[in-house]
């Protein structure tokens, strides 16, 4: 069997001991569990494959997943309020299609990026308003948004459109050296800026704290006189914006636009957020946890690539198993605190 099966069980045990040792800090437990899991996988990987133990393997996790990190950040906002956004993958594809088409027609990259951000943010805003004013389940509204965005991709083109714009190819190929043999891509910097911004917004602004309050108890938040309505709308706008940014990052990465791209990426983002310790019921979770969640998904992939004998579908199976374990952990965790 794969080395992964030997990794998972000890991790679970670790989790509970970490959770109980940090008294009062129980709310960090799920996120810490993920972090421990990640470190463990890295250590085990290093033990099995000597070349695993290099800084670049770690940095590649970031380089290969910039778009997923940004998506997970937006998704964290939505899930923290107790909502869900299924449209993000399709919005990523739409952003890529718009980028590729506009560039092909000779638009200035700056204007293209601005347009993509407006489209992504606007779609999110629209979905948020429908959810809030018509009081409809986020699941169904964002599902409609997903079909809409995906459909628009097909309207633009069924074929893959290459991106040849010098700025985009430069961004795709540029490497920012950290030391003699370590480097990152400009996309990583952008993703980290998004993460930092999201952290600041969630923890140091009233908007961010209202997001948590809504997830904790929406009725209470309303009775406390917080801006519940506008906050609920805005989180979908944030998620839409993040999808647009992710689409641009994915364009840097793949240098093309294709209407079938990013299929199911919304589910990867949700998985990363949940594995990162955010409760699907809302109110508990950290954007940094979601980043670690993405890294865990990434390292699973790296593992399977290193193993070489396993089909890449094992990634999905392992992620499925991890997701289940984390949801069960969360259930235990909420039972204990309730």
């Amino acid at each position: 069997m794969s080395p992964l099966s030997t990794v998972a069980p000890p991790t679970v045990k670790k989790t509970s001991s970490v959770g109980s040792r940090i008294r009062g800090g129980a709310r960090y437990a799920p996120t810490l569990a993920t972090l421990v899991l990640f470190i463990l996988m890295f250590v085990v990987g290093a033990g099995m494959y000597p070349s695993f133990l290099s800084g670049q393997v770690l940095l590649n996790l970031f380089i290969d997943n910039t778009f997923l990190i940004v998506l997970a950040v937006g998704m964290t906002f939505v899930i923290l309020t107790g909502g869900i956004d299924l449209s993000v993958g399709a919005v990523v594809a739409l952003s890529m299609m718009v980028t590729a088409t506009m560039l092909q027609n000779g638009w200035n990259p700056a204007i293209v990026i601005l347009a993509v951000l407006v489209i992504g943010g606007g779609l999110g805003l629209l979905m948020g308003m429908v959810i809030q004013y018509f009081d409809i389940q986020p699941f169904i509204v964002t599902l409609a948004g997903m079909f809409l965005a995906r459909g628009l991709c097909y309207v633009i083109s069924l074929e893959s459109i290459p991106v040849t714009d010098p700025f985009f190819t430069e961004m795709a190929q540029a490497r920012i050296p950290l030391s003699e043999e370590l480097f990152i891509s400009p996309g990583v910097l952008i993703a980290l800026v998004v993460v930092g911004l999201a952290f600041f917004i969630l923890h140091h602004t009233r908007f961010g704290r209202t997001v948590y309050a809504i997830g904790g108890n929406e009725n209470s938040a309303m009775l406390m006189g917080l801006a519940v309505k506008s906050t609920k709308i805005l989180v979908y706008c944030v998620s839409g914006l993040c999808s647009a940014v992710a689409g641009i990052l994915f364009s840097f990465y793949s240098l093309s636009g294709y209407s079938l791209a990013a299929q199911g990426m919304e589910l990867d983002a949700i998985a990363a957020v949940v594995i990162g310790g955010t409760l699907l019921t809302g109110g508990v979770g950290y954007v940094l946890g979601s980043v670690v969640g993405v890294l865990v998904l990434g390292i699973v992939q790296t593992f399977i690539a290193y193993d070489g004998t396993l089909s890449s579908w094992w990634t999905k199976i392992v992620i499925g198993g991890l997701l289940l374990v984390f949801i069960l952990l969360q259930r235990l965790f909420t039972r204990r605190t309730a």
């Binding site: 704290r209 948590y212 309050a213 904790g216 209470s220 938040a221 406390m224 917080l226 801006a227």
Partner: peptide, 16 residues
């Protein structure tokens, strides 16, 4: 009690 149990005491007092 219409407060948010997932937040800290200080946040519940000062929220908003």
């Amino acid at each position: 009690v219409n407060l948010c149990t997932n937040l800290t005491v200080e946040e519940n007092v000062m929220l908003g």
